[in-house]
Design a protein around this nucleic acid. Sequence first.
DNA 1: ACCTGAACACCGTTCAAGT
DNA 2: ACCTGAACACCGTTCAAGT
Lengths: 174, 174
Amino acid sequence: MPTPDRTSFEQIVAAGREILESDGPAGLTMQAVATRVGVRAPSLYKRVRDREALHAAVAEASIDALTQRLETAGSDLDTLARAYRSFAQEHPEGFRIMFTSASPHDALTRSAAPLLHAATAVVGDEHALDAARLFTAWATGFLQMELSGAFRLGGDVDRAFEYGLHQLTRALTA
Amino acid sequence: MPTPDRTSFEQIVAAGREILESDGPAGLTMQAVATRVGVRAPSLYKRVRDREALHAAVAEASIDALTQRLETAGSDLDTLARAYRSFAQEHPEGFRIMFTSASPHDALTRSAAPLLHAATAVVGDEHALDAARLFTAWATGFLQMELSGAFRLGGDVDRAFEYGLHQLTRALTA
DNA sequence: ACCTGAACACCGTTCAAGT
DNA sequence: ACCTGAACACCGTTCAAGT
């Protein structure tokens, strides 16, 4: 006897993102998600393999949200860097989980496209990948350190961001 | 009636580092550490406040190990970057936990000193902090992406590292 | 003083039984 | 076909009782 679905994969992932942002990765439990979508924990296993898969799905959704933000932001490195930073500041846990949970190849590839395009415009085809990696590595590391509070030696963090952005774009343009 | 100590904080942290490296952060449990040091889990609470404090202590020990490596490596940015990378490749989980667990101020400050010194030599006092942040952000982000397998668009990762290193040192020297 | 077993709360996961 | 309660394994943490 069929039963009407009481939840969906999409709803589970959406609930997971909210819980992650409010309670951190430790709070992103099967039980917490089940409660939020109005179901018992065992029911989640119909749509998600296990807790690790749940985390991966939330990570993928975060990457997709970031990609969309980057795609609509603009096409130059400067604009992309600022869009990246504002995304990370709005979704600190969503940003973090992108690099701590195993994320699918496809999502990462899609998110790289805007950067690769912008880098190509600056350094040409041959070094586009290297330049994109230089740029994203800096931005990712900077945001990670900013969010984790690693910048505690004083100084103006905003100025440090502008300094890095300026040095990098200048180096790549030269 | 006093009892001879059957373990120590140092032994607990050392065991924690080994378990972290072999089983990842999820495997770094109170029970696993207790078993390895030959004690029951409740006994650990005499030396460590809770699981979070255990992770923080392991993170601090990793930072200290990195700092020592950097201090003995050399004093220019190029050498520091390579030392940083080799440390991360030898202790991937130890590297990761430095940025995911709350680490004490002092350890972070000590680890920044070698970088700050090298940066000062290149850009002078006024921009030393900004330059050190640019450099560590890039290196940290790059290693994080390398270790998490985020570099999946082909290309030579070693070459990308050399490219970034070259562009950064050139930008800061100019 | 430190160590332990017992106990409790909480989570992940499986599965037989419900509808 | 999905949902649930019951059950089991495992972990974090506290605490009274041992030495």
